[in-house]
C-alpha cells in the first residue's frame, strides 16, 4: 500500500483504535502493541470499506476481540501474577473494578454475553450502536445483560465481595 495512504489511515483511525485498546488493556505498552496489530488488520481489510461508513463499528469489534484475546492469553500463560495484582491495585479503583469485571465476564460467559456486557458497561454504547457492532438485536442484548446480572452473586462470591 502507498505509504502516504498508510499515514493518512493511521492519522485518521489510530486514535480510535488506541482508545479502544487502552480502555480494555489498561496498559499503555500493551495498548500500543495492540493498536499496531489492529491497524495492520485494518490495512489488510481497508478495501472492504468502499465508503468508510462501516469502518468505526469494524474497529470497535476487531479491537475488542484482539484485546480480549490478549487478556485470555494473559490468563492462560501467566494467570495474573502477584506483581500484576500489585500494579492493578495501584490503578484507580474504577479501572481496577473494570478490569476485574472483564476478567470475570471472560471467565464465566459466552462471547455474546461478553459483547453485550462490554459494550454496555465499558463502552457505554446504546443498544442501537451495539446492534451495529455485534449484530445482536436489542432483545438479545437485554437477554444477555439479564444473564450477566443473574450471575453477579456468583461473580461476587468469586471475587470475595460480600
Amino acid at each position: 500500500m502507498d505509504p502516504l495512504r498508510v499515514k493518512e489511515l493511521y492519522e485518521k483511525y489510530g486514535f480510535i483504535i488506541y482508545g479502544r485498546c487502552i480502555r480494555i488493556l489498561r496498559s499503555e505498552d500493551d495498548a500500543k502493541d495492540a493498536m499496531h496489530e489492529v491497524f495492520l488488520k485494518l490495512l489488510d481489510n481497508i478495501n472492504k470499506f468502499p465508503d468508510n461508513t462501516h469502518i468505526i463499528p469494524w474497529i470497535y469489534t476487531v479491537a475488542r476481540n484482539h484485546c480480549f484475546n490478549i487478556l485470555r492469553g494473559r490468563k492462560k500463560f501467566a494467570s495474573i501474577s502477584d506483581l500484576d495484582r500489585l500494579s492493578l491495585k495501584q490503578e484507580t479503583e474504577k479501572a481496577y473494578g473494570e478490569k476485574m469485571l472483564i476478567e470475570q465476564v471472560l471467565n464465566v460467559h459466552n462471547k455474546r454475553v461478553q459483547e453485550a456486557v462490554y459494550f454496555t458497561y465499558m463502552e457505554k454504547l446504546n443498544q442501537k450502536d451495539i446492534q451495529k457492532i455485534t449484530g445482536q438485536s436489542p432483545a438479545t442484548i437485554r437477554r444477555n445483560l439479564n444473564r450477566f446480572k443473574k450471575s453477579i452473586p456468583h461473580l461476587k462470591k468469586r471475587l470475595g465481595i460480600a
Partner: peptide, 24 residues
C-alpha cells in the same frame, strides 16, 4: 474525541509507529 486524536498524534506520530514485537 478531538482531544484524544490530538494527544494521540503528539504521543505516537506516524514515524514512530512501526509495528514492534509485543512486549509480553
Amino acid at each position: 474525541l478531538v482531544r484524544e486524536r490530538e494527544n494521540f498524534l503528539d504521543r505516537f506520530p506516524f514515524e514512530q509507529s512501526t509495528p514492534s514485537r509485543p512486549h509480553n
